[in-house]
Design a protein around this nucleic acid. Structure first.
Lengths: 109, 109
DNA sequence: TATATTAATCGCAATATTGCGATATAAAGA
DNA sequence: TCTTTATATCGCAATATTGCGATTAATATA
């Protein structure tokens, strides 16, 4: 096995899980925080700042890009990455709904 | 390799990534949604409702429990699971800070 | 044009995840 | 006590992830 049975879940559940997966790594969290701070884009600066090899950073960037969380444009020799506003807003909304649906009043266990 | 270099990231980054990881599966999203709806606890009901084997559900529950997102108490023959309010609030806060730190004004790429 | 510089990709090894059948464990009821 | 019911755990196979060195591709600059 080793692969998720996506067909038995709703599109929303799969989508949210996919987005969470993209965020489920400290390096990717760090990369996003870095982008969020220098509102403007970055690129190979990350290789120097995080203690990971160039190939590794590039792969993490690819995963974030594939998930639609960031977008990149070629800028001369380097590549400029930044937040994809559409996905970010979707993430905020979906997670907001999900997290805020817990009303802690009725204690149970 | 195959293991994350946690030592080069901050505790906060590792913690958030760990929590995201626990949410990074549609089955676990579904389980949490189920718990959120029936505010009160559940247990093996999930096995019937989701299309996964009992062993698989039990494993997902364990992961959520290990991450501190849910808690379980033995209730006779069955086990009652519910949200761990402490972790849930932490999650809301940490994610809130993270997600809301994006101000889409300055477009870049 | 030759050479840096930057980033993506390939290929590998180590480990993690997913899913499940089979088996344990533990409490409830006959 | 014996049996049923409900969960947890073990062990396996298939696949995914993480990280990196080495290589490739593409643009700048000398």
């Amino acid at each position: 096995m080793g692969l998720t049975k996506t067909e038995i879940f709703t599109d929303e559940q799969n989508q949210l899980a996919q987005l969470m997966k993209a965020l489920a790594h400290p390096a990717r969290i760090a990369i996003l925080q870095r982008i969020l701070i220098s509102n403007t884009c970055i690129c190979g600066d990350l290789v120097g700042e995080l203690g990971l090899a160039q190939a590794t950073i590039s792969q993490h960037l690819k995963e974030l890009k594939t998930a639609g969380i960031i977008q990149g444009t070629i800028e001369g020799v380097s590549v400029c990455y930044c937040i994809n506003p559409v996905t970010w807003k979707l993430l905020e909304k979906q997670l907001g709904v999900f997290l805020s649906s817990y009303k802690g009043e009725v204690s149970c266990c």
